[in-house]
């Protein structure tokens, strides 16, 4: 049992907290402006209110002595108040929400086209994932040989492709390279750009994994007469893979998201299809549907990445302040 101090600072006492809460409620009832108030009048009343609500919540949430259920309640309340304020004062035309964002009648015949887009997206991601992992593995293994000459080229590759934004890389590959005689179709250009770009990230993940293995392992393997490649394949990589998998999964998820960038080089993937439908139907529902589909695919994958990371970090002490 933790020993409690006999007194607590006045702003942390429940009397003060509930008294100020009462004042905030009174503020909300009497001082908040009408829904259609104009700019200056609206913000002179609304601004201080939002500020006070935030300060009041922060005071409670930052207090280590308050029970968790109380802080949970306050956090929920805060979110509720902010949502309500947005609903009231943002000027959003809520009446149009249904017909614009969720107009499923407009989606007749569109789902199949979106599904085709999903298939292209997943294919692009799978092929690029395979290539980028391969590139990453080869680069990381070559780097582990620590050859100064080789490193110049490898580091140049890593720096170059980690510095160029993916969208720029794709545009250059698709629109610029044909001028020097390298004409790739949009799908190939996408795969090339994604593989090269994410290959650089994969290489860094593999390198971190390889370096996490104790040097004594290399010495023991080499002392037994194993060659460098055998040491890598039989001793280092099997141990490194545990460390490599979580960040690599993260990279591949980011890559799957970046397939959407391919819509600007006319790859017929999900976003491209959604944009075509949006224009054709003159309604943004296909875009919302595409967003939901991305969410549906990527949310489980993000959870998977978190889970894998937790597995590797099992037993590791975590600092809590």
């Amino acid at each position: 049992m933790r020993s409690r101090p006999q007194w607590s600072f006045w702003i942390r006492r429940y009397e003060f907290i509930f008294a100020t809460l009462g004042l905030l409620v009174a503020y909300a009832f009497f001082l908040l402006p009408a829904k259609d108030a104009s700019g200056l009048a609206k913000w002179t009343a609304l601004g201080p209110f939002i500020l006070l609500v935030l300060v009041w919540s922060a005071n409670v949430l930052a207090d280590g002595e308050k029970p968790d259920w109380f802080k949970g309640l306050v956090a929920l309340g805060l979110i509720g108040v902010l949502c309500w304020l947005f609903y009231q004062y943002s000027g959003t035309r809520w009446d149009r929400l249904g017909s614009s964002f969720f107009n499923w009648k407009k989606m007749q015949g569109a789902w199949y086209i979106l599904l085709e887009g999903v298939v292209v997206t997943l294919k692009l991601a799978a092929v690029s994932a395979a290539f980028s992992v391969l590139i990453g593995l080869v680069v990381a293994v070559l780097r582990s040989f620590r050859s100064p000459t080789l490193d110049i080229f490898l580091v140049a590759y890593l720096d170059l492709f980690r510095s160029i934004p993916m969208i720029v890389l794709m545009v250059v590959v698709y629109y610029a390279l044909p001028y020097i005689g390298i004409a790739l179709d949009s799908v190939t250009a996408t795969v090339v750009a994604l593989s090269l770009g994410y290959g650089a990230y994969a290489a860094e993940s593999f390198r971190a994994g390889i370096e996490s293995v104790h040097y004594g392992q290399v010495e023991a393997a080499r002392a037994l007469g194993l060659t460098r490649l055998q040491t890598m394949r039989l001793v280092i990589l099997p141990q490194a893979i545990k460390v490599v998998i979580p960040p690599l999964t993260g990279n591949l998820i980011a890559m799957l998201k970046d397939t959407a960038v391919a819509s600007i080089v006319a790859s017929p993937e999900l976003l491209k299809r959604a944009k075509e439908l949006y224009v054709g139907k003159a309604n943004p529902t296909p875009l919302v549907a595409a967003a939901l589909i991305y969410l549906l695919i990527l949310l489980p994958l993000s959870r998977l990445a978190n889970y894998l990371e937790g597995k590797v970090n099992k037993g590791k002490k975590v600092v809590s302040i």
Partner: peptide, 10 residues
Amino acid sequence: GMVFQSFNLF
């Protein structure tokens, strides 16, 4: 054959 201080088993 080499035997190390820190064993270095795989």
